[in-house]
Design a protein around this nucleic acid. Sequence first.
DNA 1: CGTCCACGTCTAC
DNA 2: TAGACCTGGACGG
Length: 429
Amino acid sequence: MPEGPELHLASLYVNSMCEGVVFSGPVRKSEVSKNPDVPFTSEAYRITATSRGKEVKLTLTPIKKDEPKRRMKTGQAEQPIDIVFRFGMSGYFRFTREDELPKHAHLCFYSKEKPSRVLSFVDTRRFGSWEPNGTWQPNRGPCVLFEYKKFRENVVSNVSDRAFDRPICEVLLNQKYFNGIGNYLRAEILFRSNIPPFVSARAVLEGLDSDDSCENENPLKKETDTKKQMKHEMSDLLRLCHAVPLEVVNLGGKGYDPTKKEYSDFEAWLQCYCVDGMKSLQDHNGRTIWFRGDPGPMSPKAKKWAKKVNDHDYTDKKKVKMRSSSRHLHNSVYLSSVSFHQVAKRKREAKVKKTVIKQEGVTKTPKNEKDARLKEAESKRRKPAKTHEVNTPQRETRSSARRRKTSSVEATAGVAMSKNKNVLSTGEE
DNA sequence: CGTCCACGTCTAC
DNA sequence: TAGACCTGGACGG
């Protein structure tokens, strides 16, 4: 669940669920968590939340009574405290009855009522963390959602930073500059801007104005600037870093609470990430980047895999093959956020009908366009084309009809995508 | 059953 | 620039 929009939706969730609720007693941590204890206890306190980028801050505010002395004695808090959370890969908040505490609830706040209700921080994989009396992590930049102006200035005034030497898709995950952007957002943002993922970040960003003209509400200016301006604004990468996550927030808070919603909205919203017909590659940090068309000049090619088992091309290829072919079908395991889960499921189902074929290439020879076209045509023709890997013909059972996205590991130039989102190809070999 | 994969940081060689 | 840190769903055998 956790990129900027989900963190913000989490804060909205806490504020709406906990409005008017009085909490009481100590904050309890699960046995298994390695995060710090939260040394706070109060007879009566309230909880509110705010978010910034990929962090959420809970504020516990004791409700005033008029006997400070007594409270002092019993170690009761008088002053509010903040707890700053990072969600890792699977964190989220839930507010439930005490008897229905979710599995993997690692930090719990109990309400004062008889059968208590509990606000809990749930985190299956435990990559999440919290800091009592914490502040926003100092090395993280301004929030792409709610500090847009500062965010923009921070990037524009620092493009000379070595951090921008890298490909844009990798820089977008740098929280010092893009606090709130994560793996699905970077794919969606680049997709909409039509910028290949592996082009130099500096090349893309330098020349952008620290002042986003969209922010100027000056009507005169609007009039004078025409379509050109609009176009520029729409394609301005930094603006998209704000606008795209905002769209997710606007899909609704319901999209967040795993119990309530259908996640079809979120699924339908994705245009690139895990979408059939899109390509994917591992970036230099081993993260999967989804994109369409040309990967760009700084793409990692197939080195990553090739180098490992260099001599043994059989095993190596086999391995590569497995990844590429099976990966797409599975990216679904997002426990904390059903949305992703559902997304994958839907795609798989849709897949059955469609028949997409793709070709993988991780091997040498980037082929030329003609080949690409031939391949594509070929794959279109034979439906469930098995992808032939050089040595390992990988078979795909029709019955299991798994879904498959295209992947292209090679930096093959953009293979023209057919409009049918289903088809694609990119193969090498 | 085993392998692969996942919305993210972290720290250590 | 690798691992480490974790759990669990989907698949393949």
